[in-house]
Design a protein around this nucleic acid. Structure first.
Length: 355
DNA sequence: AAGCCGGGGAC
DNA sequence: GTCCCAGGCTT
């Protein structure tokens, strides 16, 4: 690990660049603690472009900490539908309830207090403390780790917790007293737009190139070092879109584990023959059977290889939720894994002119 | 330290 | 296909 010679110059160049190139983002317009917090939770492992359509919608549905503390779980899930990592929004509700009880309905203002709240780890605590409350705290995310490992030519594995801690400490020494909020955001902005992930670093346009040891030594391109992650396991699943008249059969997933408490079509582990599926439903109840296209959905640690069919039954034989199109659209949150089959269902309803 | 937890965009 | 994103929690 090398040492930067002129830290002050680096910080000035960074802030000057940020003043000119910062993207206009909804949560930057009016950086209230609530808005900053909501944006930071949404942005965990999620790109800016993916968050944009959710941010204003969420603020409109839950404009304050108290409204969030009193929200119904299904309404929260529905607003978060499609964004992923659904525990984030569950933790937000818990967090809002704690703010009501402990902090007079507001977010606490210090890094240490924020860190105690559910869903807020070292990065988010640093981001909210610095951006919303102007506390001189580091906010070390994937961008910052990448930028700094190149700046300093660090060959530490950035996935290790110890590396993150190390950089947190180092970076604290760079943060200017006056503009800690801009500094942290500028580092991430550089990481997103210049010192890019999944692409060659654009050192030719980088305002930090002058002070970047990785660039100066021609080592920026192979950094950061990251240990290979283990491969996903594959699960075969069979999706049964069971319909009765103008309704479809839904179930709620268990409290814990993957996609907890989200809603889904009937589905089974493994793949089955048509006759076994028909037998399982009870042959005399099946009015029609339609094979649907295969689909694959990739989670962070699992791959679902799905086969599917749409089955029309003559009476509501299964215990579950018989759900209308209206409720599918406005009430029940269905994870993206089932999106293909939600579309198949809409087409089927359209053909049957149930809409 | 390693596993769990989503979804999608860029290459 | 592979990588990784304004990460955090649980085991």
């Amino acid at each position: 690990m090398e040492k930067i010679h002129d830290k002050k110059r680096l910080v000035i160049n960074l802030l000057d660049w940020y003043d000119e190139h910062a993207r206009v983002l909804p949560w930057r317009e009016e950086a209230t603690p609530y808005r900053v917090w909501v944006s930071e939770i949404m942005l965990q492992q999620t790109r800016v472009e993916a968050v944009k359509p959710y941010f204003e919608r969420f603020l409109k549905a839950f404009p304050s900490i108290s409204s969030l503390a009193n929200a119904k779980d299904d309404e929260l899930s529905k607003v978060w539908e499609g964004l992923g990592y659904y525990n984030r929004v569950k933790n937000m509700k818990k967090c809002a309830q704690m703010c009501m009880e402990l902090y007079d309905g507001k977010l606490p203002s210090t890094y240490e207090q924020l860190l105690q709240l559910p869903g807020i780890g070292s990065y988010t605590a640093g981001a909210v403390a610095s951006i919303a409350f102007k506390e001189k705290a580091a906010a070390v995310d994937g961008n910052v780790l990448r930028v700094f490992s190149r700046l300093l030519v660090s060959e530490d594995d950035i996935l290790k917790e110890s590396t993150k801690k190390k950089f947190q400490k180092i970076i604290l020494d760079y943060i200017p007293e006056e503009r800690c909020d801009a500094f942290n955001q500028a580092l991430m902005e550089i990481g997103a737009l210049v010192c890019a992930p999944n692409a060659a670093p654009r050192c030719n346009i980088c305002p930090l190139a002058q002070d970047c040891i990785g660039y100066q030594n021609g080592k920026a391109h192979y950094l950061p070092i990251k240990k290979a992650k283990k491969q996903r396991r594959i699960e075969k699943r069979t999706i049964l879109v069971v319909v009765w008249k103008d309704k479809v059969l839904l179930y709620q997933r268990p409290e814990k584990g993957l996609l907890s408490k989200m809603y889904e079509f009937k589905n089974l582990e493994d793949h089955y023959l048509k006759k076994d599926i028909i037998n399982r439903i009870g042959a005399k109840h099946v009015l029609s059977y339609k094979k649907l296209k295969d689909a694959k959905h990739v989670f962070s640690h699992i791959e679902w290889h799905m086969k599917a069919c749409l089955i029309e039954v003559d009476e509501p034989i299964e215990e579950g939720i018989w759900c209308t199109k209206e409720e599918l659209e406005h009430t029940y949150a269905i994870p993206s894994a089932f999106q293909t089959y939600k579309e198949s269902l809409y087409e089927w309803w359209k053909e049957k002119s149930y809409e």
